[in-house]
Amino acid sequence: MLNVDGVCVKRGGKPTLQGVSMSIAPSRTLAVVGESGAGKSTLIGAILGMIPCAAGTITWNDAPVRRCKPALVMQEPRSAFNPRLCLRRSVMEPLVAQGIAVDAAHLAALCQGLEISADLLDRRPSQVSIGQAQRVGILRALIASPPLVLFDEPLSALDAVTQKHTARLIADLQQNVGFAALIVTHDLGYAAAFADDIAVLRAGRIEELTTAQDFVTAPQSAYGHTLRDAAFALGALEQVA
């Protein structure tokens, strides 16, 4: 289980995360929503150990989180790969880095779950669509079977139909594999439909942390209300009568 406890992060002397606490159990999904600059990506950096914490602890099953080798799915799928390598080599990188042998059955099952054909992996990033590239990005994240996967705006580069299709594939895989997921997104529709819990981050603090269902029907904070109503106004969420 991921435990983030009282985490504070300072960048350039300014606090960007202040007393952030949350936890995610295996097979559960927590969506972190909030405006630009709220600290969403800093939180991901802190969990991955790329950004040092000024205070607080981040653990996976009471051990430092890096030991569980969490994976990251990035926002811009095509720029997440080395453009000169075929996708297969990029996908295998986590296995090479961790000294794990390729499990052909596991790879085949993931490819099937993500609707990735074998020939797709022999292409370069520029030779596939953005939706295909993001599915391969998810494949790379899951290839070494990490217990924790972090998604940084995983769907925002995709069109509306591909977004929803990809979200469904991620959710189905999660059900089969059982990883814990933290999804950073500004799309409340996605968060409400696919996350178990939603954390609203504002100016580095957790404004509210509630179940996705409760957030849609009755946000606890004034800012949560504003955020939800904006999602209604943009058609990302349908108003419940």
Binding site: A160, Q163, K164, R168, D187, G189, A192, A193
Partner: peptide, 12 residues
């Protein structure tokens, strides 16, 4: 039809 079917996150 595809766009309509994928219009709403909560009714996929």
């Amino acid at each position: 039809k595809s766009l309509c079917a994928h219009r709403n996150w909560l009714e996929l």
